[in-house]
Structures are given as C-alpha cells and as structure tokens.
C-alpha cells in the first residue's frame, strides 16, 4: 500500500476522531485511544463512574465505523445463550428461534457493544473470552465467524453490588482499558449541563457522520499499517525493559508510596499484552505521521494497554487504579531509552 493510501486512511481516522469529538466533549485522549484501538483491531473496555458518557462515546464510534452493530446490557440473569439466540412463540403458535445479538449481523458484525459488562455472570464472560480472542462462535452445529468485530464494553468500577469482577484472563483480552473521567474544564462542564444538545443522547449520536470508515477493510489495512511502521533496535530494547519492569518494578527502582513492592505484583504484563501495546503504539505513530515507533508512542498507550493486565496482590486490589497509575508512571520515569 502506498504512502498515499496510508495518508488517506489517516485522514479518515482523524475525521472519525473529529466527528466523535463534536458530540463527546472534553474526552480527546480517550477518543484518540479508541481510534488507536480500532486501527490496532483491539477490544476496548471503558471504565468510569455512572453518567460520564461511556455509552455515548461508544455509540458515537460505532456509528462512525459502520457495519453491523449489536448491543447487549449486562444483567445478573443474563446467560451465555442470550448472546447467541432467543426463542419465542410465533404468531403461528409454534416455537421459533431467532439469532441473538452475536449472530444477528453475521460476518458483518463490526461492533459488539456490551454495556455494564461487570453485571454479567462469569459464564457470559467465559463465552465472551472466546469470541473476543478467536472472533468465532460455535452454535447450531455451525462455526460462526466475526472477522470485523470489535467488542466495546464498559463497566462501572464504583458500584460493587450485583456485579462480578472481570477475571484477569478476560481483562487481558481487551487491548485497552480506558478510564473516562468528567472533564475539569468549566466551560465544558457548563455545556454538558446547560446545552440542550447534550440532553438527547440519540439525537446527539446521530450527529456523527455515519460510516466514516469502511469496516470491512479495517483488518486488511491494519495489517499493512503494522508492517509499515518500523521499530528500531533501541525501541525494542526499551519495550523489553518496560515489560521486565512491569514484572519486577523494584529491579528498576520503581516504588509506590505505601505499598510493599516485594508483594505488590503477582504477575506483570503478558506477552499478549505487550504485543497489543506495540500494535497500539504503531497506530499512534501512524496517526502522528511517523514512520517508526518512538518511546512517546508507547507512552501514549502504555497506561491503557498495560494497567488492566497487571495482577496485584489481593490486598492491593481495592486501590488498583491508583497503584497501577503510580507504578506505570514510575516505570516510564525509570526506564531509559536509549
């Protein structure tokens, strides 16, 4: 693929960002990360308080990507089969089976939006693991494929009742976990409250130009993109040091206040996690018109791609977000490149 095509796709990507930024204000960084994830072909988990715009953000992206879109709400009584099919009595009085959200769009499914994923049972998480990792599902004696599917999920970290913690294996399937916080800017806060265009979410999302991207070409382009962005030996060494530092932060002199660093990390970033980090870093480099990955590209995606993969000692799990942020900042400050 020529440089021109790379440039064209970059323009599409920036156009998508721009469209989403119109309807979701004050979230430039999460929007950049989600764009990155789309082009790196990774699933995204949004984490944040209630009513901060997680669902709106994902819906806006979904509209811009185009293709089949399905959505399901996580509830405590949701079962795996609810994702695959549902049965009902038809007008003819006979039982009928309809495809569930996963199967409804067939191979054209581009976005599967799982709202409040942590309200679903572990059985549902288990099914989702396979779908996310392999983009395929066995049902009705048939293997169904979803080659263009990206899972967007969100969860509310504050509320713990009637929720199920997403296991680390499931978290690891997500390329990024992106925190969504309320913007600090007073003008934006005022607009969110008083500007009536933000009151009707459906109308707001409809403002996003549809099908900015061609969803069925994203996989092919992603491969080209990954091959077109180089990684130097110095950067490889830097990335490896970062990886080692997630496993043994003390070896790099990284400390977190009030934490026994000898006991903190049970497991650092996984090989899959580091490979996803590099994929995302390549996309970030491409979005910034670079032909090779710089440490700054890794920094841009480091928190989002690594923090949710760290497995901490249970005693520190309640402070996970804060500790992970401090530890990863410490790692970036401690590891030199070159």
């Amino acid at each position: 693929m020529s440089d021109r095509q790379l440039t064209d796709w970059r323009n599409h990507a920036l156009n998508l960002e721009s469209e989403v930024n119109k309807v979701v204000v004050g979230q430039q960084n999460p929007i950049r990360l989600i764009t990155t994830s789309i082009f790196a072909r990774g699933h995204v988990l949004l984490e944040g308080d209630v009513g901060v715009g997680k669902t709106t953000l994902l819906r806006a992206f979904t509209r811009g990507i185009g293709g089949g879109y399905q959505r399901i709400e996580g509830t405590i009584d949701l079962m795996p089969n609810d994702l695959v099919y549902h049965t009902y009595l038809g007008e003819d009085g006979k039982p009928h089976v309809s495809p569930g959200p996963l199967l409804m769009s067939g191979e054209n499914l581009s976005v599967f939006f799982f709202n409040e994923i942590n309200r679903a049972r572990p059985q549902v998480h288990s099914l989702l693991l396979r779908v996310m990792a392999e983009r395929s599902l066995s049902a009705f004696n048939t293997e169904h494929y979803f080659p263009h599917m990206i899972v967007f999920a969100d969860r509310n970290q504050v509320e713990k009742e009637e929720t199920f913690e997403i296991p680390s294996a499931a978290r690891d399937r997500f390329m990024m976990e992106i925190p969504i916080v309320v913007p600090n800017d007073n003008d934006i806060m005022e607009a969110l409250v008083f500007d009536t265009k933000f009151h009707n979410v459906d109308a707001l999302v409809n403002n996003v130009k549809p099908d900015v991207l061609q969803f069925d070409e994203l996989n092919a382009f992603s491969g080209v993109l990954q091959n077109s962005v180089d990684t130097s030996d110095t950067l490889k060494k830097y990335a490896l040091n970062l990886w080692k530092a997630t496993k043994a932060p003390l070896d790099y002199g990284v400390k977190v206040s009030g934490v026994d660093m000898n006991r903190l990390v049970l497991s650092g970033a996984s090989p899959r996690g580091m490979s996803m980090m590099l994929r995302a870093a390549r996309v970030n480099a491409w979005l910034n018109e670079r032909t090779a990955v710089l440490p700054e590209d890794i920094h841009a995606v480091f928190h989002a791609t690594v923090a949710h993969r760290l497995v901490f000692s249970p005693v520190y799990e309640m402070r996970r977000t804060e500790i992970a942020r401090e530890m990863l900042n410490g790692i970036m400050n401690a590891v030199a490149a070159p």
Binding site: S232, L235, P338
Partner: peptide, 10 residues
C-alpha cells in the same frame, strides 16, 4: 535522537 535511535527516515 529520534533519527539516530528510532526513525532513520526522519
């Protein structure tokens, strides 16, 4: 440094 260490084309 970017040219030397990471991106020779830059």
């Amino acid at each position: 440094s970017r040219r030397i260490n990471f991106e020779p084309k830059y």
